[in-house]
Design a binder for these strands. Sequence first.
DNA 1: CGGACCCTTGAGTCAGGTCAATGATAGTGG
DNA 2: CCACTATCATTGACCTGACTCAAGGGTCCG
Lengths: 239, 239
Amino acid sequence: MINSLFLNLQQHDVLTDEERDLLRGIIVRERRFAAGEDLVVEGSRPAFSSLLVGGFAARYKLTGEGTRQITAIHIAGDFVDLHAFLLKTMDHGIIALSPCHVAFADHGELKKITERHPHLTRMLWLDTLVHGSIHRAWIVAMGRRSKASHLAHIICELYVRLGVVHRTSGPSFHLPLSQGEMADVLGLSLVHMNRVIQRLRREGLISWINQTITILDWERLAEVAEFDPTYLSLSVEPR
Amino acid sequence: MINSLFLNLQQHDVLTDEERDLLRGIIVRERRFAAGEDLVVEGSRPAFSSLLVGGFAARYKLTGEGTRQITAIHIAGDFVDLHAFLLKTMDHGIIALSPCHVAFADHGELKKITERHPHLTRMLWLDTLVHGSIHRAWIVAMGRRSKASHLAHIICELYVRLGVVHRTSGPSFHLPLSQGEMADVLGLSLVHMNRVIQRLRREGLISWINQTITILDWERLAEVAEFDPTYLSLSVEPR
DNA sequence: CGGACCCTTGAGTCAGGTCAATGATAGTGG
DNA sequence: CCACTATCATTGACCTGACTCAAGGGTCCG
């Protein structure tokens, strides 16, 4: 059930069979969520961390004016709120962008892992660090790239991350976000989001129909995005 | 020498005397950097992590067009690139914004801590998670707040973080960033940055002269920023 | 005294926002 | 099966926040 998590962690270092078993052991419950449901509510103090088994979810924060900013997109294999294990209080919510299948990891069991299994602890720590790297890449894209470049960067990133967990088919992948939701990722208005998407289409970089994105020209897309996957730490080495 | 780190960590949970000694023990070297020098170079694979003892530093990334985006501001007591301990390769640079005093923690010694001292390990992990929370707060500010609100948010955040390590005096604090550097934080042009600053001044929220920011009206500044310090996890509880 | 940085201000331009309207598609209840 | 509603994608017209270019002034330092 949590094979995608293994695929994720294995991109960074070798996982032993014992470590796999330990990870299986921390899952105490599972649940399915409908699209639009909150997996985790802002301000709550969860006793479990959510591991996304299938589907797409987003961290988000609402502003006083009622606008929304999505701060991360999560895919199968992501330990969505492993943070809460140590941060305790959620400073943002997590919403299902599609129907989601979630496994819950008990914080007490996670603590036991940190007491007895240092390498696995470092692997989990690393997983949260990679998500920090992704945040930084997003900040750069938001602050200093054109909106077209920003969108291209997000598409490149999703393609690589989904590839790791075998959720791409050739140059295509399923992405169940509406343009309005994607606008909340880029910090744009819905109208302008639409125009940016059309520009990438017109330039022959992508197609995006029926919740399916196809990368028509990876070279040029990555160039527009200035995409450099270093920040995803996709190399197996001792951690 | 690393008392500021202790002040930082103590905001989240109790540190034992033994843990303090362990932290002192991982410092193998120290060095001073001039303003403008790189503490850590993008693409390098450091064998040490830099603990900022005094001064201000910034993580940054340069784009192909030669613009710069600052993704984090670091102050005394910050474990600037603890990430590198597990991420291995730096995907961004770190520059001294003022003269900086840096202590270097050996990655081998850090690894030993993770092997033998689970609580201290969790505290260090937590420290990196808090910086992840700060990243998310920045993403929200960049995407969905006005530039004036964004600047107000950064000032509130710096005031609180500097207060933790006793670097404020009353409503004031020292901030050795030029307006051009601050523009690289907000993702703005220098000219517009200047206009945004003047607006906060004109509205009587802050004064900012001689590298010193004074908060003239905390209530209204925090309101403009929609500042809620939850994301800094400033509560002592078992972690 | 001349650079080297900063900060400040004005003028013109453009990216991106708001408001508004039109279709297309899918699900719901009768 | 059909009217009804909701959600999305798309397009046009107009407005404003932010950028660029350009120039002037302050301060510190060699």
